[in-house]
Design a protein around this nucleic acid. Structure first.
Lengths: 125, 125
DNA sequence: CAGCATCCCTCGTGATACTG
DNA sequence: CAGTATCACGAGGGATGCTG
């Protein structure tokens, strides 16, 4: 576990790039972070905006994000209960990265989908 | 994200951002693309550089990438066989995005891992 | 409203062995 | 070398119902 000056091999399972993929490479994490990039949000808001997510996955995703110091959870002692989730400073730094991703998707995903259709049309299943 | 004057709902299952997550949000895809970002590579090279990937997952990942027009496969009729994989132009456009990801990981993942340890240390299982 | 517990089943993934 | 075929396992994630 020593933090010596490692040589950088993104294809080594123990390198940060890989750890990041393991961290955000699931169906929901980046979507939840994306919503929180617009500002703090309540549990209900998140459930609504991340279309299709189940309560279980939302809780799970949020808890993992909190564990990793990317999101803070603030619960108010009220009735009915109110809980607000918010990106930490570290979490905020993900925003520009996600924006890049979004920009790419917007520009290139249609082409990808077309290529996929062409491929499927010309290939024998 | 909110300051663009188009209707763009990244949290709708049918939006490009989401499609991108579905596309590259698996354990291997971004790693394979990462290797190919350094230039064309043979099957063997890829297997070596993406540590831990099985032949099956490598083939599968490559085929999916080819289907989506992000990678081209070039087979030479030789003995022994030689097959070279290469990013298409579309595939190349992913490079800067991936670099951003890598940059983020390098800078912030150590902190994330620390936060995680702190959390686990202070929480009761 | 927020979110945990439980059941259950799909599907991604690894291991292994085989082919052109 | 460059894959494919097959099996089998375990985690991911949905549905439902309950609690504070």
């Amino acid at each position: 576990m020593g933090n010596e000056d490692i040589e950088w091999d993104p294809y080594d399972p123990n390198c940060p790039s890989r750890q990041l993929v393991d961290r955000i490479g699931d169906r929901w994490t980046v979507l939840v972070i994306g919503v929180l990039s617009d500002g703090p949000a309540r549990y209900r808001d998140l459930a609504d905006r991340v279309a299709g997510i189940s309560p279980k996955m939302l809780s799970q995703t949020l808890k993992a994000l909190e564990r990793d110091g990317l999101v803070v959870r603030q619960a108010f002692a009220e009735v009915p209960p109110r809980v607000v989730y918010e990106l930490t400073e570290a979490g905020q730094t993900l925003r520009p990265v996600l924006l890049e991703l979004e920009r790419w998707a917007r520009k290139h995903m249609p082409g990808v989908l077309e290529a996929r259709e062409r491929y499927d049309a010309s290939a024998q299943g």
